[in-house]
Design a protein around this nucleic acid. Structure first.
Length: 205
DNA sequence: TCCGAGATTGGCT
DNA sequence: GCCAATCTCGGAT
């Protein structure tokens, strides 16, 4: 069952936590990708100097002004891209970064996207973990890109959306500081990263 | 095997 | 020049 608008247009921190266990689906022609969300980070508002939009929107971040459910993808380090989901009602700025997924379907396509060679036979455990255990890795594995998917609406798109997934008990959710935002004077210590405890696809300890 | 340092890369904060 | 990252390679375990 696809998640509707009401799921996304709520408080960003709440959405980040509830995204854990949900399924991300990408249909690309005959290729079909499915993965369970394992790790997220919330980026909230003007008080959060870790957020790209804390000083206001720019051409890069313009989609964040839209209502929750839209896709925000940006370039980083010249060669990687990151996948975010816009939250909150229209005009309120917030987004959730998807940091890790657990592959469920389409692993052979993820393998080809990540390693640039055909998937022959069984994928070993190390290769499997390395498909989607990081924010730029999962973008590569799922065949996502800024050019194709920036601004797309997860509520109505025929190629990319989220579905109700597995319930994650509160006791199995861990919360921590966000990864690699030491440059944010205020926001660096905010506990806005959520992940499923003991899941092998979590990006960092 | 595991961990840290160094290289990579180009649009924009 | 900076950056919500990743890969590789060397040396330690």
């Amino acid at each position: 069952m696809r998640l509707g608008r009401d799921f996304y247009t709520r408080n960003t921190i709440l959405v980040a936590r509830e995204l854990l266990g949900k399924y991300l689906i990408h249909k690309d022609g005959l290729k079909s990708y499915k993965g369970k969300i394992i790790e997220t980070e919330a980026y909230i508002n003007a008080n959060d100097d870790g957020a790209h939009f804390h000083k206001g929107l720019t051409p890069r971040t313009r989609i964040i002004d839209q209502e929750g459910g839209h896709v925000y993808i940006y370039n980083i380090y010249g060669m990687y891209q990151m996948f975010n989901i816009v939250t909150e009602p229209k005009g309120v700025h917030g987004a959730v970064l998807i940091r890790a997924l657990e592959p469920l379907e389409g692993m052979e396509y993820m393998y080809e996207n990540r390693y640039k060679k055909p998937c022959e036979g069984k994928i070993n455990k190390r290769e499997l973990i390395n498909l989607t255990n990081g924010p730029a890795k999962l973008v590569m594995a799922f065949g996502l890109s800024k050019e194709k998917h920036y601004g797309l609406d997860l509520v109505s798109s025929k190629e990319l959306w989220l579905e109700e997934g597995e319930e994650v008990l509160k006791g199995n959710i861990a919360r921590s500081k966000r990864i690699n935002i030491d440059y944010a004077e205020r926001g660096k210590d905010y506990l806005l990263r959520f992940y499923i405890k003991d899941n092998p696809f979590v990006s960092k300890k």
